[in-house]
């Protein structure tokens, strides 16, 4: 296999079993180069396991594929040279300084002009003045930025970022996403896993996983359109008790709270409108709204037979 495929990731029928439980159960992903892909799905849906199989960290139970044109079963060592993988949990060395962590990575990849590369990376991170601090002393957001800098230092073609923004404050999340788009403009293909719905909007394309299976993929707007949903949003003081009443009524296929508001969605516009009219009350205000990605996912998962209460 050569390394010049148009697809950054091309896997078919990927299965990973732990014991007799399939954590990933037949996933296909065809991901062209040069975009930012979101890898969405609730906790335990198999995102991490899939990423690990793609970069050769887990044995593949079934299926096949290539990454950057290299066979994922046979060429793991070449794939590792050209990808940067940021683990879900911070996995650099807390008892090494920021600089020592970067130096270790530079040595391991045998980067020429190590000192200069490390200096530049520290400069780019804005951590030059803190380079002698232990990595373990950094805040969550800084740890993530250090990790991102470390996994991109060798100039990979593909970045695999596993929930890089989990537990990071909103401002740091925005900065992190700006950095991701910056890297993408410089030619890297990026796969970002996340369980934050709002982050999906920042991706060119998304793949949605549930229970180890791909539920849908594509552009955010296309996924919403394809769902064929109509959504009504209820706001007001009495909304709290509304969901149990309206659930299961004719045309109201999916009911979910979004903060203090209630979304009621269905595919049959007329029947849903009819049902909603029965719930016109003084302290409830109804509007028809554009379905959100989350509404679409709830509907898709229900169709795929996935219990939507798992959704996190």
């Amino acid at each position: 296999m050569s390394g010049d495929s148009d697809l950054a990731i091309d896997v078919r029928g990927l299965v990973k079993r732990f014991g007799d439980k399939a954590a990933v159960n037949g996933v296909d992903i065809q991901m062209p180069r040069g975009k930012v892909w979101g890898f969405l799905g609730p906790n335990g849906s198999g995102k991490t396991t899939t990423i690990r199989m793609i970069c050769g960290l887990l044995k593949i139970s079934e299926g096949e594929g290539s990454c950057l044109g290299y066979d994922i079963k046979k060429d793991a060592s070449r794939i590792k040279l050209k990808t940067g993988y940021m683990t879900q949990k911070f996995s650099f060395w807390s008892d090494l300084t920021i600089r020592e962590n970067l130096e270790f990575v530079a040595r391991l990849y045998q980067l020429p002009k190590m000192k200069r590369v490390v200096d530049e990376t520290l400069e780019g991170l804005g951590l030059a003045h803190r380079q002698r601090q232990l990595a373990g002393a950094l805040s969550g957001g800084w740890k993530q930025r250090l990790a991102l800098a470390a996994v991109t230092m060798h100039g990979p073609d593909l970045l695999l970022l596993d929930e890089p923004t989990a537990g990071v404050d909103p401002q740091a999340r925005r900065d992190f996403w700006d950095e991701i788009h910056h890297l993408s403009r410089n030619g890297m293909t990026v796969l970002v896993s996340t369980h934050y719905m709002d982050e999906a909007e920042r991706c060119d394309r998304i793949v949605y996983l549930a229970n180890g299976q791909k539920v849908t993929e594509g552009r955010v707007q296309n996924i919403i359109d394809r769902s064929g949903l109509v959504t009504w949003r209820a706001e007001g003081d009495a909304v709290r008790d509304l969901s149990s009443e309206i659930e299961g009524q004719d045309g109201a296929e999916h009911v979910a709270y979004f903060g203090s508001a209630l979304h009621v969605s269905g595919t049959d516009e007329a029947r849903l409108r009819d049902t909603i009219s029965h719930f016109q009350r003084p302290d409830v205000e109804w509007h028809e709204v554009r379905p959100s990605l989350e509404d679409a996912f709830i509907a898709l998962m229900a169709r795929a037979g996935v219990d939507q209460r798992d959704h996190g």
């Binding site: 960290l57 040279l81 990849y109």
Partner: peptide
């Protein structure tokens, strides 16, 4: 135990 093994293995270290 510290989770750094995953990082080592993801880099080209055997």
């Amino acid at each position: 135990e510290q989770g750094t093994m995953e990082n080592l293995l993801a880099m080209p270290a055997k």
